[in-house]
Structure formats: structure tokens, C-alpha cells
């Protein structure tokens, strides 16, 4: 593995992922990340000429007709953390 992962790297990643680990947790996460990725750097042996594969199956185009179906929204609205006149209420940004 080229470079060790630093605590700053982990802090930055945590922020992107909307997680705020404590200082102790940060230490643990940094150690884990290094140990795990060190072991996984085994994949460096795979030739670069290999084609990346995301999709497991080959498919005919999965397309559906443009038809409308109504769903009762009650079950969805009941999950909202805060609600106001049918709107979901999130924190303001301004």
C-alpha cells in the first residue's frame, strides 16, 4: 500500500459521510483503515488490463410502459421526523 492513512484523512472522510467520531473513535478507525487496506492491497497483483466489472448479469433493456399508479402517501408521511401541513420539515439552510 502506497501511503498510510492519516487521522486527517479519516476526519475528512467522516465529514463527507456526515459522521462525527469522537477522538478515541478516530484513532481506532484510523488504525482499522490502515490494517484492513494494508491487507486488501493484495489486489495490486490483479493485472490493470482486466476490465472493471460492476454488473453481474447481461440484460435486455429493462424498460416499463409509462403508466401511472397511485400510492397512499399516509404510510410515507408517518415516518417524517417533523411535518407541517403535509410538508416534511427539515432544518433551514439560510
Amino acid at each position: 500500500m502506497e501511503k498510510k492513512i492519516t487521522k486527517q484523512d479519516i476526519e475528512r472522510v467522516a465529514s463527507i459521510a456526515r459522521l462525527s467520531p469522537s477522538t478515541e473513535e478516530l484513532d481506532g478507525l484510523t488504525a482499522d483503515a490502515n490494517a484492513i487496506l494494508e491487507y486488501f492491497s493484495l489486489i495490486d497483483e490483479i493485472p490493470d488490463s482486466e476490465t472493471p466489472q460492476t454488473y453481474v448479469l447481461s440484460h435486455d433493456n429493462a424498460l416499463r410502459p409509462d403508466e401511472e399508479k397511485k400510492t397512499d402517501p399516509k404510510g410515507i408521511r408517518r415516518g417524517f421526523s417533523r411535518e407541517q401541513d403535509g410538508y416534511m420539515l427539515a432544518p433551514k439552510s439560510f
Binding site: G86, L89, A90
Partner: peptide, 11 residues
């Protein structure tokens, strides 16, 4: 739609 000023969200 999310209104930044009021926080209301409509999907």
C-alpha cells in the same frame, strides 16, 4: 423541492 428559508420539503 426544499425551501432553504422555511425548511419545508415536498417530494
Amino acid at each position: 423541492r426544499y425551501d432553504l428559508k422555511t425548511g419545508i420539503v415536498d417530494y
